[in-house]
Design a protein around this nucleic acid. Sequence first.
DNA 1: TCCTTTTTCGCAATCGATTGCTTTTTGTAT
DNA 2: ATACAAAAAGCAATCGATTGCGAAAAAGGA
Lengths: 330, 330
Amino acid sequence: MTIYDIAKEAGVAASTVSRVINNKPGIKAETRKKVQDLLKKYNYTPDAAARGLVMQSTKLVGILIVDIRVTHHINSAFLIEKELTARGYCCITMSTGPEDDQKAMYIRILEQRRVEGVILMGSMFMTDKVKESIERHLPKVPVVMVNGYLDLPNVSGIIVDEDHGIEQCVDLLFRKNKRKIAFALDSVSPSNYKKQAGYCRGMQKNKAPEEDLWLYELEESSVKGGYDITERIIREHPDVEGIIYSIDLVAVGGIRAAHDLGYPVPDRIGMIGVDNSIYGEICMPKLTTLDNRLQALSESAASILREGLEGKIQNKKMMLFSEVIEREST
Amino acid sequence: MTIYDIAKEAGVAASTVSRVINNKPGIKAETRKKVQDLLKKYNYTPDAAARGLVMQSTKLVGILIVDIRVTHHINSAFLIEKELTARGYCCITMSTGPEDDQKAMYIRILEQRRVEGVILMGSMFMTDKVKESIERHLPKVPVVMVNGYLDLPNVSGIIVDEDHGIEQCVDLLFRKNKRKIAFALDSVSPSNYKKQAGYCRGMQKNKAPEEDLWLYELEESSVKGGYDITERIIREHPDVEGIIYSIDLVAVGGIRAAHDLGYPVPDRIGMIGVDNSIYGEICMPKLTTLDNRLQALSESAASILREGLEGKIQNKKMMLFSEVIEREST
DNA sequence: TCCTTTTTCGCAATCGATTGCTTTTTGTAT
DNA sequence: ATACAAAAAGCAATCGATTGCGAAAAAGGA
């Protein structure tokens, strides 16, 4: 069913049908009704692509996520999608995977679809290749990066001061008289480097000797990964008094490992995660965590993108402050 | 940059450029190279909408999910998306929310976008309104419903025998000598009704007296919801020996509540969830759960939809068998 | 050199909408 | 009844691609 089919049956021109659909003036009430009845009769809906072609506007936005299954990313995407859908946009949400080439490929896909805005979810998109790809393929489209930043005239970024946050975590452990603190990071990403930097600064500030900076990198970012790394940390440093993990999920594995090895949490060892996720509320003891302001992050992202979609393309840099949520594990 | 701009600069007709882009024969190698160089120079990418218009194919598929944040739904969506993206399709994944009107509205959005296939994720889409909406707006598009079914010529469904699964859960508890078993369901959905039916059948089969069928409905589908309902169950039936929850997340709250109330799991009370989710592996003790075959479910859905996209529109009904995974909580 | 055959390329229609401009219809005043 | 303004509806171009068909150019043969 096209606009012409409707027009023919109504005995009018296609332009008239179009004006009825879009509630434009200059149509006799009688004609309008006749057309409307036919539209209803055939359940006519205009083709978004054809309309987009002439209107020069697709009403599409792309949301790129490295892995859509990561809870905090999908939560964030959910909020953004809700906001944008309410404004008549349609979101194409895609998992790119960690490889840079893949990310570039997905950016091309978004270009083909002529998206009018892009959300880059997570610091994993802070790479040269992505930057170059955006510059080449989407140079005039508003892009908002959640928890990261790219220095391009059309991309804005909102970042969370996770480094300071982790520093506060270290402080907290020291206040609890835990001075031998390890740090376990789950994957190599700019966000995690920042956290690591925060850990180092925190330790220095609290005058921990250089050789007590225990940095560990996980095999896999999962409960099992957390379990294994914790086992290893305790084996290599039986005197460890605290562990900070770069995400809650991993910390949960850590709690379990400590339990199994007879290191009661928090008495013998304090543990802290990052995310303020549901995992931390599930486990026993409940996990002390660094809230990375997910809700605020998504709201800001949606709002900046909205400005971009309305024409105000900008290169904005925003910062949000993370916050330690103290629970039972410290 | 359009195909005409490229054509003009190359001194050829647009049709020639098109043929180069699509690797069609009948173009002199020299001309081909000249055009290709220009395509590269300007990073030209064809407009998917314009192409779709003339090709009568959008290469779009829609994935509708009631709430994208639900872990097993997004996991399923991830797998399906990966499969379809690999085949050149672009997925529009949207959260509809639980209201029927909203679901219908999203179906209209998909119609506007002229999607070539639809995935309906979860039994919550088994409603008359959705059925009517599909019939009216997407009568010729292949639709696959994950864990549910609609009797329409263009929709296929894959369902899991969760009822039998729950029946087995009851059996398991009885084998462990737990005979006073409650059932807590998290939300009213066809899937949960099936589980409830399985519970009732299981109890009858094991000759539990009629008055020992304890059905509870949660306020909210969350850890807190599980905690609260469990508290209530134990308060109202201090002799309860087992609880089956309709999802793991809620069961995890139950374990915590039992712990707080001095009901050791599994000695005093056995607990079982559904989903085989990560939550069940995190908690202590690890949760016995009913695996609802997520992976197989998504693979089948993707494969049936693929057949539909290739022209074989059908009304297929498939069944998968769930499986009890016994862990520490029973 | 001329004619035929094959390559290579361009013209123009098409997909399904929207919109500026023109034409037709309607209504009002003289 | 005529003139004229205002309202209603139609014509045709446009958006950015693809493709059948025909024309021109190149290649081959006599």
